[in-house]
Structure formats: structure tokens, C-alpha cells
Design a protein around this nucleic acid. Structure first.
Lengths: 252, 252
DNA sequence: ACACGCATATTGTCATATGATATGATTTTT
DNA sequence: AAAAATCATATCATATGACAATATGCGTGT
């Protein structure tokens, strides 16, 4: 039983190795702007001292961050924080760091927009490509979301599983790669306001998800797309309400 | 003048430092399946010997690959190649490696699907958020695509610039992050068959792109979305024709 | 004024040693 | 004999100290 990524997100980031600790702290510091974009960060030696690790570990951490596009090292110059638009926002670590710096409404809006672009399309593709096995699997997951015993966490996990299953059934590997994004969105939504709060909410969510599978099962592309759009719209609305008690525009 | 990413893709990958060389060779080997998914790759020392570099450099290269989700190291076990669905396909290096292993029709189809999900949405958002400065900038880029003096390369670059500008104007950072994907798609398309081959093709392309800007300028979301869909559909059709002289289904 | 070259600071690379960890064999216990 | 505890071992993780490569900017000479 491999532990899913959502769990690590909720329980906190893996801080076993000293490498990942440094990566985590530095990554958050960059994302938060503590090391502003365009600036040079301290040299290897000083950072190594500051984190109380060897230069080896520090450099490996830097390579990890560089691989994600956050920094660019240049000999004699130093290591520069790259412009925001060069960061790989689909990286699950980077998303996590964003959320650790407090939940930003704009950010959630952006994620919702991306989901709105992506997931309905994935559902439509699933209506074309999904196998019978995948369909019954998705149906089981959708039904499982209706369990009234759900805690907010367990519901978020079930939700994530369903959406990843749809992405998988789309037979397009890129859709599956958006998983980390979906995950981040669900965590954000769940932290703000969970439908598991009331039993009625849970039933609603489950019913809406089942409808997606039904459309996929009927091989109805447009129907699947529409059903998925409903689910995402509901989630977004919940976020808006939770973030601001006087939502300027609820009509989405 | 910062050099764009497309140039490096066409001219070949940066192979200055021995670190990036190792990353490149190992990355390609993993993507190509030379080190199959699920297998353990050779130990640090052996790989260091094989690449004729120190263990330090090799390990930093491994961290780079691990950051992109290609491998997972575990003490005493070794370093395992992760399942394909854990790779970050939106990473520009990973995409480059895919294309270096030969262009795969399925892969191009998948990219087209993603663009079809993403870019029309981005265009619609641009119709809402684009500033006047951004609009005139996009218009200049679209017009510049019509220059009959374009070589295939320069047209691909102009094309990329335009699509990135639209993503930027959407005011959603995630859209901009899909840039590496767009880039890969353009490179793939350009390698197969460039519209710069005939003058008529260039004019067509330019006209279609100008139409997008016009719709954005009119703040017409649906129109911008539709215009973008046309552009992507045309590109996809050209790829299909180029890949197979007897396209089974041109009707998309 | 201009070009050239050198001092210098920072990242890049190397070699070696030791610690941490998980596997599988071995031993002990029940 | 079966199960649990222990230990040897292989691999990654970390540390240390040294040297090489590189790019900046100053200073020097013409």
C-alpha cells in the first residue's frame, strides 16, 4: 500500500532526510518572496552554515530547486532566483509551498480556471476511451464518496481518487500529470470548507460525481464534459463563499 | 536579450557543464525505456565510473532527475525508475527528451488534446483580462508571422512568441506555465511540416492568428476561444497529414 | 581613450571517509 | 518447526577539504 500524495500534504511534508528539509525551507522561502525574484541568494558556504549542513547537501538541494525552475546558478555570479513565469507551477512541491504560505484567493481562482479547462476535456476523452473496467472502478469511487462516515480528510482523499481515475481513463498521460494540481486544489478547498460538514453536502457531492460516470458510460462526450463542469463549479463556489462571507459575484 | 527556450531546443540541449551532460544522457535513457520503469538502476559508483565523473556530480544529476519525478532513491535498495504517470510531463526537459527519442504520433495527438483544452480557455481569459498594451503586442506578433521571408525555424519562433503572449495576457500564471508544452508542440509540428514551405501557408497562418487578437480586442470570449480552436485544429491536421499520407480521419 | 590581462569570488568538480538505513541471513526463543 | 529478534552487508546520505573553471571588474600599459 503506497501512501498517496494527499496524505503527505495534509500530514505535512516529508522531513526525514536533511536534504528534503533544506529543499523545503529554501523552496518555501523563495516562493514566499523572502528571497525576491531576480536577487542573488547567499553563497553555498554561507547557506550551508545557516542550515547547519555540509556543502554537499546544500548543493544537492540547490540542484533540486534548479530542476524545478526556481533558481539558476552561474559561476562567479551566484545563484539567481528566476522570474515567476519560469517556475513549473505543475510541480507538486511548488504547489505545496504555495499553500504553505497561506491560501490566496487569486491562486485558488487560477487553479479553478485550470481545472475548468482541463477536467471537462478529460471527462470527454474518458467517454471515448474508458474501458468497462475503468468505468466500474470510477463508479465505485463515486459511490464511495457518499459514505456519511466521511471525515473531511477522507472525503478529500476519495474526491482526489475519483478525479485521478477520470484523468487516467482519458488515456492521455498529460491529463494524469495534472494530478498534482487537482490534489492541490482539493487540499485548498478542503482546508477552507469541506462538504463533509453536513450529511446533505456529502450526498450532493456523491450524486454529482456519479452523474459524470453515467455520462462516460453512455459514451456521451458532451454530457460528461457538462457533468464535470458542474462538479468543478460547485467546488469553486464553495471556496468563494468560504473565503468571503460577502462574495461580490456568486454568479459564475 | 535572453535566448528563448525554443532556440535551445532546436540547436540542441545545453551541454556545457558535465552535470547537465549526465542529466541529459540519463534522462533520455530513462524516457526511452533503456532503463525500464520499475527497475533499479546501477549504483552511484558504477554510474559515476560509466560517465567518467565524480560521484558528487553523479549524485547531483540524480537529484535533478528525482526533482522531475523520474526516479526515487531508497537507501540500501537503490534508485528506482518511477511509473510513467508520476513523471512531470509539463517539465520542459522531459518533453525535450521525449522528442529526442523520435517523434511519436500518439504523443503529438496527446499534446494537441492538451492544447485544445488549454489554449482556447487562455484566449477566453485574455479577452477578459488583456490590457491594451498586451493586445497591441499580440497583434504585432500575429502580423509578424505573415512575413514571407520566414524560414521554418523563424516561423516556429514567431508562432511560439504569439502563443506565449496570449498565455501571459490570460493573467493566469498556470497558463503561462504550459509554455514548455506549447513549445514542444510547435517544435514537433515544425519538424514534421512547416507552413513556411509555401507562401500561401504563411499568409493563412498569420490571418488565423490575427483573428484571435481581433476577438480578444472585442472582448468576445466565445469568439476568441473559437478562433484559437481553429488555429490548433489546423496545426493538428497538418501534423496528421505529414505523419501519414493516408490519414484515416481528417475530420476532427 | 582603449584594449588587454590579472586578481578575485563563486560555482563546478573531485576524492575519500563515515553515518544511516533497509534487506536478508542467522540465531534465538517459543 | 515456526516465529521473533539479532546481526552482517550493501546502498544511499552526509561530511570534509582541496582544486578547477568561469565570469566579473579593476588596474595597467600602450
Amino acid at each position: 500500500m503506497k501512501k498517496g500524495p494527499l496524505e503527505t500534504l495534509i500530514t505535512g511534508v516529508d522531513t526525514r532526510t536533511s536534504h528534503s528539509q533544506v529543499v523545503d525551507v529554501l523552496g518555501r522561502a523563495i516562493i514566499s518572496g523572502e528571497f525576491p525574484v531576480g536577487t542573488i541568494l547567499p553563497g553555498d558556504q554561507e547557506l550551508a552554515m545557516r542550515f547547519k549542513v555540509s556543502r554537499t547537501v546544500l548543493r544537492e538541494a540547490m540542484k533540486t530547486l534548479a530542476a524545478k525552475g526556481l533558481i539558476v546558478p552561474r559561476a562567479r555570479i551566484g545563484t539567481r532566483v528566476t522570474a515567476r513565469n519560469q517556475w513549473n507551477l505543475f510541480d507538486s512541491d511548488i504547489l505545496t509551498w504555495h499553500f504553505h504560505n497561506g491560501i490566496d484567493e487569486d491562486f485558488l481562482t487560477h487553479i479553478s480556471e485550470v481545472r475548468m479547462a482541463f477536467e471537462p476535456h478529460a471527462a470527454a476523452l474518458a467517454a471515448i476511451h474508458a474501458t468497462e473496467v475503468e468505468i466500474s472502478h470510477m463508479m465505485r469511487l463515486a459511490v464511495a464518496m457518499g459514505d456519511p462516515a466521511h471525515t473531511p480528510e477522507s472525503l478529500a482523499v476519495a474526491d482526489l481518487r475519483f478525479h485521478l481515475a477520470v484523468a487516467e481513463a482519458s488515456a492521455n498521460p498529460f491529463m494524469r500529470s495534472v494530478g498534482s494540481l487537482i490534489e492541490a486544489a482539493l487540499v485548498g478547498i478542503f482546508k477552507l470548507s469541506s462538504p463533509a460538514a453536513d450529511r446533505e453536502g456529502i450526498e450532493d457531492v456523491s450524486r454529482n460525481h456519479i452523474r459524470i460516470v453515467e455520462q462516460i458510460s453512455r459514451r456521451d462526450e458532451a454530457g460528461a464534459r457538462a457533468a464535470m463542469e458542474v462538479v468543478i463549479r460547485v467546488g469553486r463556489a464553495r471556496v468563494r463563499v468560504a473565503m468571503d462571507d460577502t462574495p461580490e459575484t456568486v454568479a459564475g
